[in-house]
Design a protein around this nucleic acid. Sequence first.
DNA 1: AGGGTTGGACAACCACGTTGTCGATATCCG
DNA 2: CGGATATCGACAACGTGGTTGTCCAACCCT
Lengths: 155, 155
Amino acid sequence: MSRSGADLALLLLGGYRKLVEAVVAELEVRGYPDARPVLEFAMRAIDAGADSASELGRRLSVSKQAAAKTIATLVERGYVDTEVDPSDRRRKRVRVTDRGHALMREGEAIFDELRDEWARTLGADGLARLERDLAAVVGDSPLRVEAAGWAAQES
Amino acid sequence: MSRSGADLALLLLGGYRKLVEAVVAELEVRGYPDARPVLEFAMRAIDAGADSASELGRRLSVSKQAAAKTIATLVERGYVDTEVDPSDRRRKRVRVTDRGHALMREGEAIFDELRDEWARTLGADGLARLERDLAAVVGDSPLRVEAAGWAAQES
DNA sequence: AGGGTTGGACAACCACGTTGTCGATATCCG
DNA sequence: CGGATATCGACAACGTGGTTGTCCAACCCT
């Protein structure tokens, strides 16, 4: 029944976690043991044009330092590389590598499979309604992924 | 439209954050500047019978050490107190204080107000459907609140 | 009595975020 | 042209909420 507002929050969080944990787990199986949601979302933003730490920070509504750290681990893991911008030598241009793109493709595929599963239990129109209602209520607010610890450990 | 599975995840997370951020912000206004979601949820569990660190850890699907830390900060802030269990001197019984109960009441009230707001934009039946669908899809899985950093700073 | 299990404490660590400061470039403007 | 100002990235310290691992004391069972 879930009459309480707090339960509603938990339900929402539960849905998110369910999805994302499944994706991370499946990505691990498919050869990306170090995929983390933050990294996924950051790569999306980078690919969509946030090609520097400061810019990435802005897009993700996060400090540029946090963005820089994320980029550092992305580079470390080979999902992204950087080169100094010849037209502005302060900047380092960030680009998603082939491996990075491969990861993104896999991630999207898994996400979509999961969504299809939901569509199966809710009905296609049920899912559409869920998404519409959710969108109505949360608005198009900036993303802000983070949600840090949620699945930091594999367990 | 949000056709992608990843967007669905973001929508869910967005909903959760929207709710919880508002609650924390409002609690701050109402005189609980140090209320954190983890604390709220932990208090609920304690009040519902998880009266020791180990037990709380189990209920929240979290290590007993993590639970102990949470209890420590709860004690520090005066929301909870402990006493050794006379019938088992290893245990420390945890109990929510009056101030803790007050906080919980406020929190619930705010959560419910927010839920009412949602009901206003979605319609009562729309919200009910949302909750039902969500419950169907996430199941009655264990809570696992955490979602750590999400609002660690007040900004 | 004596061994296994459980509760809590302590320490080290990880992931992700924050501020603050700094030097090096770019840009704007008088 | 040249100096003030803004921006970029780096580094450091810290906060929050997790994780392991180890340890001792207390409990329970045979």
